[in-house]
Computed example of a mutant assay.
Amino acid sequence: MAKWIIGAVALVAVITVTAVVAVSCTKSNGGSDKPTAAPTTSGAPTSDFASANDTGPVSVITEDPSCAPWFPVQQTLADSEKNGWIQRDPSIPADVWTPALRSQYEGVRTALRNAADQTVPLVKLTTHRVMRELYEQFVAYARAYAERIPIYTPPDNELSNVANYATQVISDICQAIEYGSAAARAPRTLPAALPTQPSPISASAAPPRFMPEPDHNCGTWKDELDHFDSNPAVVAWRSVSPNIPAGRWSPEERAINEAVLPALQSSANELEKLGRESNNAVSEDVAVLAAQYRRAFAEATPTYSPADTYLENLPRSATALLISACAAAGGN
C-alpha cells in the first residue's frame, strides 16, 4: 500500500483486518540522538503478566514474544472476513439484512469471538504495557461488536473499526520488528517522558473498553490528522513512491523528503500533547506510541528503506483507533 493510498483512507470507513501490511514508504520527523528507553522494569515479576513492571516511557518496540503467536490469529481473522463481509454496506441495519448478508455477519461474529479468545493469552505474554493495552482493546471491541451483530445498527460499525485499527497497530509494531526497521531506528529516537499514570493490570479475561465515554479532547484527534494531511509538504511527500530507498532518490525526491520533516515533528509533538491531556491512560499510551514511531521514522530519512514504512503506518492507524473509539463512545 503506497503512501498516497494510506493518506486517502477514510478514518471512519470500513477497514478490513489485514494479516500483513504491504511494504510502503513514508517518513517522519522528530529527530534525536538519544537511545530509546526499554520497558522500565525492576525486581522480580509481580504477577504472571510479563509486562507487569513496565511502567516507563512508551518507546519503539524492537522485540516482543507475542508477535509470533499473534500473526496466525490475525491471518485467520482476515481470511474469515473475506466471506463477503468486507464489501458490506455498514449503513444497513440488521432488521433489513438479506439471509446472505446475515450469514456473512454471523460468520464474522464467530471469527471475532474466536480471535478474541485466542488473543487473551497474549495479554499476559507481551513484555510491553502498550502492547498489552492494544491486545486488551482488540478483545474488548471485537467482543462488543460481536455482541451487537444480532441487533446491529450503523453506529455499531465503530466498534468494528476500533478492533480493526488495533490489529493494524499491532501488525505495524510486529512488522517493524520483523523487517528490522524498529531496531535500526529506535537507538536514535529520543525517549518519551514517563506516563502520566500507567494503566493498571487487570486479571480479567474480559477487559473493558478503554473509552466508554468520550475523552474531553475527542474532537481534536481528527482535526490534528486533517491538519497533517492537508499540509502542502505532506501532500508533496506522499507523491513520492515509497518503494524507492534513499540511495536512489533524485535530487527533487530528496528535497521533498527532507522538506516534510518539520511537519512530521510538529505532528508527533501534537499527538503526544493530546495524549497526555486526555486523562485516559490508554489514550495517552497509544498517542505517545504514535508520536514515537513518527519520530523514529524521521530518523530513517537519510538512510530510508521501504521497510521503514511500518514506522509511519503506525501513527495513522493509532490515530484512527482513537478517532473511532471516540465515535463508538458517542463523541465527535
Rank of each mutant, 00 (worst) to 15 (best):
T319N: 15
W4F: 15
T153R: 13
L261P: 11
C174M: 04
S28Y: 15
A205N: 13
E252R: 07
L311N: 04
P45T: 01
A166Y: 12
R102K: 15
S250D: 15
P232S: 00
G84V: 12
P72T: 04
P90D: 06
I177V: 10
S24G: 14
A50Q: 14
V58F: 11
Q87I: 00
V17F: 08
S267K: 14
T127K: 10
G330V: 00
A142H: 12
V96I: 00
G330K: 01
A163D: 08
A328S: 05
F49G: 09
L322Y: 05
T36N: 15
N29L: 06
A116K: 08
T98E: 10
M211W: 02
I173V: 13
R148D: 10
K3F: 09
Q137L: 06
M1N: 04
S239H: 04
T16D: 14
P195S: 10
V169L: 08
A246D: 04
Q104W: 07
S24I: 02
Q292F: 03
T41C: 06
S199C: 00
A52G: 06
S66M: 11
I173S: 02
A206Y: 01
K3E: 11
A287Y: 01
D215H: 10
P207Q: 05
T36G: 14
G275H: 02
N83C: 13
T46L: 04
S283K: 13
F138H: 10
A13S: 11
I149E: 12
R294P: 04
A100S: 11
P232D: 02
I92W: 01
M131A: 14
G331Y: 06
A193G: 09
D172Y: 08
V234C: 01
I170N: 03
R188N: 15
T153C: 04
A176G: 07
T41P: 04
N332Y: 01
A176P: 04
T46K: 08
A290R: 03
P39Q: 09
L159M: 12
T189K: 09
A268S: 15
V21I: 10
D172I: 00
V73G: 03
F71Y: 11
D117P: 07
D226N: 11
D79M: 07
R109P: 06
I5L: 06
E312Q: 07
N269S: 15
P191C: 04
S42P: 08
N279A: 11
F138A: 09
N164F: 08
A183M: 10
R143F: 13
Q175E: 13
E272W: 03
E312M: 04
T196V: 12
P212N: 04
A22M: 01
P306W: 01
A176W: 01
E270H: 03
